[in-house]
Design a protein around this nucleic acid. Structure first.
Lengths: 152, 152
DNA sequence: TACTTTTACAGAAAAATATTCTGTTTTTAA
DNA sequence: TTAAAAACAGAATATTTTTCTGTAAAAGTA
């Protein structure tokens, strides 16, 4: 379970590009295929490596608007939270949802085609949820950084 | 450049798992290897597919705290923004940074081991930037959803 | 210490996958 | 109606992953 320096090097490489071959990695860290293969399998089995995914260009898919929604619920009870959570899990435009501290209850990140779609989402999907009391929208004007790479 | 239904099916699958083989995909959408291969290569070339990455378990890597920082700059000039942006790009604990509308200028997402690390980050790395005037921290209490999958 | 066990690694063989090639069918456009 | 282009299938080839065999180093035990 404890990661040594070799594990960390492998993880750093795989975070950057899941399509590096074992040979690529082996070359970069001066090892043979076997230990690289064994270590990757172990990291998968231990759940350090969660999954391999493909990142698509959101703008090229027509998603030109990103917004943060700061949501306040009507009540702070468990049932209210759970009901809200379940609804959110079924909304594909909500890519992040976190229960937070502060002046509101949830911070959501929404990726959506345009303002019209957002208007529709806001009015017909989010604000109509029985658990939702207040929504404060923060519009993204320009994306500076967005990465899946964690510091290791 | 226009995506047909087959392209979309391929993208939906690859978003979920970048390690699906061409054969897996071909079977799932009832095609032979050739068109699947050709289409994936085209989607890569056109930049619809941006990259393949590995998602790691942040908690197993010791990152137990996620926070949003709402940052206000001292001035709203181009130079101030650019200076801030460049500093952020060199901070590995900042996984998202967006210039936004509203009562503050930037929304940041920080992934970090614990409160002590955050204290250090806040005091020694973020608040000391000459462009930063105000920081409002929103702590994540519980993660409800976090996905790289875009609606297609 | 000597011995056993475990772990980490290398190299080679086998299996699976990606890539390339050839050719056919379908669609599109002249 | 014909020519050109696009989409696809199947087979051959190249590459990669996976498995197998064995060696060396490290860790644990009597």
């Amino acid at each position: 379970m404890a990661l040594d320096e070799i594990d960390k090097k492998i993880l750093r490489l795989l975070q950057e590009d899941a399509h590096y071959t074992l040979k690529d990695i082996a070359n970069k860290i001066n090892l043979s295929l076997t230990p690289v293969h064994d270590r990757v399998k172990r990291l998968e089995k231990d759940g350090i490596i969660e999954k391999y995914v493909t990142i698509l260009d959101k703008k090229k898919l027509g998603n030109n608007l990103t917004v943060y929604c700061q949501v306040t619920l009507t009540k702070q009870t468990y049932d209210t939270s759970e009901g809200f959570n379940q609804s959110i899990l079924n909304m594909p435009e909500v890519v992040e949802c976190n229960y937070v501290s502060g002046n509101f209850d949830y911070m959501l990140k929404i990726i959506i085609p345009d303002m019209e779609s957002y208007h529709h989402f806001h009015q017909k999907k989010l604000s109509v949820l029985p658990e939702v009391s207040l929504i404060n929208t923060v519009f993204v004007i320009s994306e500076v950084k967005s990465t899946t790479v964690l510091p290791i």
